[in-house]
Design a protein around this nucleic acid. Sequence first.
DNA 1: GTTGGGAATTTACGCGCGTAAAGAAAAATC
DNA 2: GATTTTTCTTTACGCGCGTAAATTCCCAAC
Lengths: 343, 343
Amino acid sequence: MSGQKIRNMEEFAALSGLSRPTISKYFNDPASVRSRTRERIEEALARHDFRPNIFAMNQNRSLTKNVGIVVPYLADPFFAEIARIIERRCIDAGFSPILYSSHGQQKLEVEILEGLTALKPAGVFLAPLGRLSDRSAVERFCRDVPTVLFDSNIEGMGEAFVGSDNVSFVQQTVDYLCRSGTPPCFFEMRTPANPNANKRRNAYLKIMADAGLEPHVIQVDGEGWGFEEIGRRGMHRVIDAWPLPTNTVLCSNDRLAIGVLAACYERGLRIGRGEGCALRVASHDDHPFSRFTCPALTTAAHEYELVADKCMTTLFSLIEAGGRFSTREETLIPARLILRASA
Amino acid sequence: MSGQKIRNMEEFAALSGLSRPTISKYFNDPASVRSRTRERIEEALARHDFRPNIFAMNQNRSLTKNVGIVVPYLADPFFAEIARIIERRCIDAGFSPILYSSHGQQKLEVEILEGLTALKPAGVFLAPLGRLSDRSAVERFCRDVPTVLFDSNIEGMGEAFVGSDNVSFVQQTVDYLCRSGTPPCFFEMRTPANPNANKRRNAYLKIMADAGLEPHVIQVDGEGWGFEEIGRRGMHRVIDAWPLPTNTVLCSNDRLAIGVLAACYERGLRIGRGEGCALRVASHDDHPFSRFTCPALTTAAHEYELVADKCMTTLFSLIEAGGRFSTREETLIPARLILRASA
DNA sequence: GTTGGGAATTTACGCGCGTAAAGAAAAATC
DNA sequence: GATTTTTCTTTACGCGCGTAAATTCCCAAC
């Protein structure tokens, strides 16, 4: 903490009694210099608190230590949570994560990808908008930058995909709902932006068909990322057209379910599996708030830590492989059923 | 989109028939070159899609176009929301926002500030952890970088503070609750990290005293950012020790209130102002989810857009003033009462 | 047509660091 | 103690752009 400010590596080298290239080596990999030398540098570092200029460092490097994390909508706590874990892991691994949110807008996603390219990142975790993504822009980006897609799969883009096994999600909730009561109908948005929604509906249809049960899909209108409000308004319409085909509602995701529960509460419908309950409601994602809904939501949980871990290991092996895999890797992580009071 | 890849500004200058310094001028400020020249550059730009190297650009500049946004906990939708708006505004103003979350950890906040310093940002929006912040680290940072504090004020740090007028928040909720029913007790964490919590409690005490009413403060234990769970557990204890001093509970913030509502639901207590309701519950912040609680939460809302706007204009004038104000500016923005079903 | 001034060009240097090559020094090996 | 191996130093060049100074150009006004 003492002494004058160091301007550059040259000065710091002089103060630590070493040459600049040695210092440079140290900063690129502390293990690449002799332990005695390392000690001398770290001692000088403690005294003078020097940090090499990031811009000068990266300018001459084809690859930086930057890692991009792009999510479609950060105000959705699901993405905030997954981004948080990945970010933490990146820091621990010595990378500099940079977090971006597309805020649900195609134009912004494209801008982010273009800006990210200029940062020459070692790798990028990309959760694309999905249906709203500019496919050609994403494709161009993935050609330039080693990319691991997560959450939303877009066929053929990126070197790998890490996501949730939507079939497992729906299988677990439907199984549980069937063995504990009436088979569920499926509640979803008519035009979901996220491809997982389509996979979940198809899984529902197949599982019901395999079990010899009649499926019922309820589709509600609405655009954008205000899922709770879409679910709430949609459920009000459903209640207006009472009765439902079944007393059990399986929502495509927790945010819709939160809206559904709100609508039911507003209409005086009791939710749960006990006496006097009009409906059971279950869902998917284990949204951070779903344990605080009234009643608490029965849902299929993402294994947040597992997903984040798999993302990390995948990107690291991708980086070590020079940014390309011979074949595109797809990892689907199964769900964990969480039983709460709503179903 | 045609033609070969451009490697650097030199090549691009040749292709557009101009000199490199002119191109450089254009990228630093398109208005600084003659309109004819600008047209020629933009035409060449459309054909070849060149972007100057960020690292080389910033290396020789004392100030970049980077703007840092630091929030204490991004998985809290309140911060996600405010960060989203500020980010959008920065982009529109031609800056490159970079978003960081301290994830509630002092060490991480310090690391972020140190890393941010190295990016030579034009300015930074900082919502500090509060009680958990390393004051000396924040102080050092603010000396080096033009900083606007928001959300949590730390006396004397940064050139300006933009936040909410906690007195206005509490005034509005207490006034409403008093004129529509029993005066409220105040529900909060015993050791809140955020200084706003203390300001709100003090405001409550003063307002009650001024009105000649007896205040009741309920403090629940808990550490960290899991406010909903802290509120839920705390409320269960309160219900165990029934009755409350009053049938009206004013929570310090919406996330605590969400937990309180969950606990009440679990114990079969009806919330609201109607017949058969055991309690009224109100709160502060207008958290993005508080309109979907059961019942929907009566609360005092932040003027998100106003706060974001004020943050932006403050930072811009700070940047134009060369990074220093003669006196520290403090802006407090009043609340907007939102009446819903819970009180 | 002349003139003046803003705009563009040329020239030249600097930023802080990566990195390569060759030689010197230190450490490890026998 | 001599040899090999590893590590460090020296030297030198390059990255892509900012920026300043001096010159030349263009355009408009007179």
